[in-house]
Amino acid sequence: EEERTFTNEEEARKAKKEAEKRGLRVTVTKDGTTWRVRIG
Rank of each mutant, 00 (worst) to 15 (best):
N8E: 06
E3S: 06
L24I: 05
K16G: 13
K14V: 10
E3I: 14
A15K: 03
R36K: 13
R25D: 06
F6R: 01
T5A: 07
R22N: 08
R38E: 09
V26F: 01
F6Y: 11
R22C: 07
T7F: 10
K14Q: 12
K16T: 09
A12K: 01
V26R: 00
E20Q: 07
F6H: 01
T29N: 04
E1S: 10
T34A: 09
G23W: 02
T27S: 09
G40S: 14
E2Q: 11
G32E: 06
E1Y: 15
R25Q: 10
T7Y: 11
D31E: 11
V28I: 15
E3F: 08
I39Y: 06
E3H: 05
V28D: 00
T7P: 08
E11T: 04
L24Q: 06
E18G: 03
G23H: 05
V26E: 00
K16S: 11
A19T: 02
K30H: 12
D31P: 00
T29K: 07
I39F: 07
A15G: 01
R4L: 15
E20S: 03
R4A: 07
G23D: 02
A15W: 15
K16C: 15
L24K: 05
R13G: 05
A15Y: 15
E2T: 11
T5P: 02
A19E: 02
R13E: 13
N8Y: 04
F6M: 02
I39E: 03
E9M: 07
E18F: 05
E18K: 04
D31C: 12
E18M: 08
R38G: 04
F6A: 01
E3W: 10
R36E: 04
K16A: 15
V28M: 13
F6Q: 01
D31W: 04
T29C: 09
A12M: 11
E20P: 00
R38K: 12
K30M: 08
K21G: 11
E20D: 04
E11F: 03
R4V: 11
K21P: 00
E20W: 04
E1Q: 09
V28P: 00
D31F: 07
E20V: 04
G40R: 10
E3A: 04
E11N: 04
E9S: 05
V28Q: 00
G40N: 11
V37H: 01
R22L: 12
T29P: 00
L24A: 05
E10G: 08
T33D: 15
T5Q: 08
K21R: 11
G23F: 03
T7V: 08
W35E: 13
K21N: 11
A19M: 11
F6V: 03
K14W: 08
K16W: 13
E10S: 09
A19V: 03
I39S: 03
